[in-house]
Design a protein around this nucleic acid. Structure first.
Lengths: 223, 223
DNA sequence: GTCTATATACCGATAGAC
DNA sequence: GTCTATCGGTATATAGAC
């Protein structure tokens, strides 16, 4: 809140602490995170952590809230640029994947929060998570009205999309370990990740079981 | 290892500690779990925890390993009863859903492990997680050979299935909190959960058998 | 604003009586 | 096998000098 100019990169102690805290919380969770480590990663004295930001739980609420806000605005933005439900879903999945990739702390933190049942999370942040679900439900309803989508369970659908995005993002290191241990099978080709996910999801949603593919797969697969 | 008869219900101190530990680790994670709480939930003295089972990390490895084994055997069992790939996938998803529902500790523990990158997890257990992935890849390959499934990215597909199963299981309490806070929207109908998931997944996988559909539905752009 | 030193509390693990 | 009491280590948070 004490920023001089919004357009210049913020490397104030406060910002450095928050950035470091996001890394440490993502890696170790709230209970596993050490304030000493946050201070060390931020390159500031531990007392400065308390002076510039606050105690551990306060830092955590700030960091988590910021990431949820970021994902929410990215999602709203993506949905605004879409002519129909399918297009909105495509841009939404692409935006989620890009945002999760650009903010590797998001998925681990969310997965841990889900595992904890959201205990110790401010109700305000819970509400934002709920509005993410509402966004998806709106797209599904719209696609159904447009005749593009089959009627599906919105909860399962949302969990499927959120699940694959977060597991692909957060699961990258564990897959790397498995590849290293298992003798390096092959590269899972996570480059066009959003396309793969959208391809699966849209085929699951489309009304009337489409023959030809959606965006990229199914090259000339014709009898 | 000191069981008298395998068919009688085990309520030995050791078994009670392991059951309690699963609950506490699922709720709070490894770092957040307290040995005192495990002892209290198990109804035994804290010293008995160490005497009958071992220290915290040993308990954790036992509990996690047991749940992974359970899921793996349930999956193998389900796949054995299936005539083709689609049938195997259907029974596999049903078995995963049922197992996750019967063992509510599984999903939270796995989500946390993924968030941690599997750090502090015995390589043996990592290998079992890898063989779960291999099971799914085998089904997908088989379905492709049978002409039932489209060619899809096995990693994304597996993450999608595992994601929706675990998020629906672990996310139950957080959804309940959101319902309570949001004025109780509606019941998400999680009764026939496995059917909903399989319905979405199989529509995403099925090879295009029906050439009649709304053609221009996909991307609004054209060369 | 920044650092050192420390208060305070908690937690994992064990010693030792019974 | 079971319990009490406690040791040793570590974590959060702050007081106080500069």
């Amino acid at each position: 809140m004490t920023s001089t100019h919004p357009h210049e990169r913020d490397d104030s102690p406060r910002a450095r602490v928050l950035a470091a805290a996001a890394d440490v919380f993502a890696k170790s969770g709230y209970a596993g995170a050490r304030v000493d480590e946050i201070a060390a990663v931020a390159g500031v004295n531990k007392a400065m952590v308390y002076y510039h930001v606050g105690d551990k739980s306060h830092i955590y609420a700030l960091v988590v809230g910021e990431r949820v806000d970021r994902m929410l605005s990215v999602l709203r933005d993506a949905i605004a640029h879409g002519t129909n439900a399918e297009e909105k879903l495509r841009t939404a999945i692409a935006a989620m994947t890009a945002s999760a990739s650009a903010n590797p702390q998001f998925a681990p933190m969310m997965l841990r929060e889900i595992a904890s049942g959201g205990a110790g999370l401010p109700p305000e942040i819970l509400g934002k998570a709920a509005s993410v679900f509402e966004l998806f439900r709106t797209i599904l309803d719209e696609g159904r009205r447009e005749g593009l989508f089959r009627p599906v369970d919105p909860v399962s659908t949302h969990m499927m999309i959120a699940g694959v995005v977060m597991l692909l993002s957060a699961g990258a290191p564990i897959r790397a370990r498995l590849r290293a241990a298992g003798g390096s099978r092959r590269t899972p080709g996570t480059e066009n990740l959003a396309d793969n996910v959208f391809d699966l999801v849209i085929h699951g949603l489309r009304a009337g079981t489409d023959p030809a593919a959606s965006t990229q797969s199914a090259k000339g697969r014709k009898p």
